[in-house]
Amino acid sequence: MNIKKIVEAVLFASDKPLSLKQLQAIFPELQQPDIKALEVAVAEVMQDYHDRPVELKAVASGYRFQVTQEMSPWVSRLFDEKPPRYSRALLETLAIIAYRQPVTRGEIEDIRGVVVSSNIIRTLLEREWIKVVAHKEVPGRPALYASTQQFLDYFNLTSLGQLPTLQEIQELNKPLKDNEQPTQADREQQEINTQPLQETASIETENDT
């Protein structure tokens, strides 16, 4: 039984990320490899796809095959439908939840300084990027929102620890010195560093503020 080939085939055929436990459950009970053996198999498959247009990527929910970021613009030409484009207000709301969770809608509004549209919260819930984790014990018991594994998966993150720090974001937003123009390398690095929460995907929700 070639564990590596089985793991590769199963992950290739799956339409969602699979964890090591889920991979283990694929095997008959008496032939199930231990988690360590599966980790080795996954690592070997990852190495096989190194520097290829398709990669095996670790995300919060497990492992999945996907087109590399470099090839994504070319593959997108296969599809007539354009990627959704999210409003700045929606991305700001999502960022606040990711960094300050758990957080109430009122607390988000205090940070942003404007009312948060119901459409924004509904869109984030429908995308399953956020969820209600509890209710704050104050008058009205407002919902407390937190990010989900689907949020991490979408932005190719394995944990919240991979988000850029607030200091890194501030550094990226510093104004250039007089007469200084960003180089191509600067622009590319900024795109890489800010990608997790500045995807150019989306839905322009009505009445976003």
Rank of each mutant, 00 (worst) to 15 (best):
I6G: 01
E8F: 07
L11F: 06
S14W: 06
K16W: 00
K16H: 13
K16L: 05
L18K: 05
L20M: 15
Q22Y: 08
A25D: 07
A25E: 11
I26C: 13
I26W: 10
F27I: 15
F27S: 11
F27C: 10
L30S: 05
Q31R: 14
Q31P: 11
Q32C: 12
Q32P: 05
D34H: 00
I35G: 04
K36M: 15
K36H: 15
A37T: 10
A37M: 07
E39I: 14
V40T: 15
A43N: 14
E44S: 06
M46Y: 03
M46F: 08
M46W: 08
Q47L: 14
D48F: 00
H50Y: 11
V54M: 08
V54R: 01
V54G: 07
L56R: 01
L56C: 04
V59D: 11
G62A: 04
R64A: 09
R64C: 08
V67C: 00
T68A: 06
M71F: 06
P73H: 12
S76N: 09
L78G: 05
L78P: 03
L78N: 14
F79R: 15
D80G: 15
P84S: 05
R85Y: 02
Y86C: 12
L90D: 01
L91C: 09
L91I: 13
E92Q: 14
A95D: 09
I97Q: 01
I97Y: 00
R100Q: 14
R100T: 03
R100C: 02
Q101L: 13
V103N: 02
V103Q: 00
T104M: 10
E107G: 05
I108N: 00
I111P: 00
I111D: 09
G113R: 07
G113S: 10
I120Q: 00
I121S: 03
I121T: 01
L125A: 06
E126A: 12
W129M: 04
W129L: 05
W129Q: 01
I130E: 02
K131D: 06
E137F: 02
P139M: 04
P139F: 01
R141Y: 06
L144Y: 12
A146L: 02
A146D: 08
S147L: 08
Q149K: 02
Q149D: 12
Q150A: 13
F151Q: 00
F151A: 03
Y154P: 09
Y154K: 14
F155P: 02
T158C: 09
S159C: 15
T165W: 03
E168P: 10
E168K: 13
E168Q: 14
Q170V: 13
N173L: 13
D178Y: 02
D178S: 04
Q181C: 12
T183V: 12
D186N: 05
R187Q: 14
E188C: 04
Q189R: 11
Q189C: 09
Q189V: 06
Q190G: 05
Q190V: 10
E191L: 13
T194Y: 03
L197V: 12
L197K: 03
L197G: 06
Q198K: 14
Q198M: 10
A201F: 15
A201Q: 13
S202W: 03
S202G: 12
E204V: 11
E206R: 06
E206Y: 02
